[in-house]
Design a protein around this nucleic acid. Sequence first.
DNA 1: ATTCCACAGGAAACAGTGGTCC
DNA 2: GGACCACTGTTTCCTGTGGAAT
Length: 400
Amino acid sequence: MSDPIDRLLDAAESGKSIIKNRDILHFTFIPEIIRHRDSEQEQVTQSLLPILKKSRPSNLLVYGKPGTGKTLVVKKVISKIQERVRKSNFPIKLIYSNSKEETTLYGLLVSFGRQLDLTEKELPTTGLAISEVFKRILNNIDEKKINVIFVIDEIDYLAQLASKTGKDILYQLTRANERLTQGSLTLVGISNDLTFKEKLDPRVISSLGEEEIVFTNYNVDQIKKILNERINHAFIPNSVQEPALNLCAALAGGEHGDARRAIDLIRVAGEIAERKQSENVTEEHVREASLKIEENKEETSLKSYPLHEKLLILAILKAGGSSTGEIYSTYKTLCKVVGREELTQRRITQMLSEIELSGIISGRLIHQGIHGRTKKYKLTISPEMVKKTFKDDLTLQDIV
DNA sequence: ATTCCACAGGAAACAGTGGTCC
DNA sequence: GGACCACTGTTTCCTGTGGAAT
């Protein structure tokens, strides 16, 4: 039997590849994604139109589940408008930031500042008061006399950050124009969460929600069309079987009409098929791809946890479907074994809720009468997966 | 009807870090 | 060099809760 490495290398070299253009198999490649978004494109354009007449457009709120192409559409529309006004002396600047990628309010504002070409000197990454950072950004806009469009992705997350720190940054952003004399600022908020507005300050709602656009989910049919177009560009003809395509669309459509997931799925399925030196992508490959994506997600999220969270997950594994109290005492024992100081129960309760949010564990509140109230947690992923992942961790090796 | 358990989870305070500004 | 700021991760303190036991 030939060496497996040689076999793979041979296959790669022989040029037998069913994927002819890998780059197209990414969500960020936009033509097909937004082809089914004509009316939304129109709406976005319309609400930003006043810019061409040199007046301030309405602030805009865009909703849609992940993978509906909302960010891509907004960016495309703005870059088109930018092209139009390139020659005018009232230029438009697109500034994009994702609230989730910036962990703090300060970080988000600094990222805005950097995109406005504010240097480290003019806007340091720490040390200033938030109001000071905001002032500097506005001054810069005013001095340069530019029309700025702030696109804030996952704005619900920003709202959460702001409410936690007690800073009404969203309010200030929506009212920034009152402080600008020469430039202007338009806010485009993008959110996955349709209900997030309810949690906002009413003053913010009235100015932020001047215009609202909702991106509906792609249906299975649309996803199939998108996939088909991609496949035509990316794969050699007839290499993806019809049932495989259908399954891909069904899996992604069945979830939330997420085009991103569908495209990921077909890409991974294609790679698997290639690795197996198959001439076609089959249903089997798609199923395998789906499993692989799922497993990868679990593994990376497990690996990314800090030590105490990992200890907690192990404690849940060892205590098996038990209450916070039991988990806490198991956790304390584990801490002793690895020689780390244990945290308080309050902190542990909080951590458990945080881990629960990620979906790795699930908790159920139960009332036991005179035996009090507690929450019972259990793992939602296989214990083998946890053991396998934590085996590589030097501190945890002995207790896994 | 009242008591009481075993926590859940909110609020506030604190320590420590890494920075600016004057 | 001291006042001030943001931020994270934590502790401390506290109130609330549903139903079995009494």
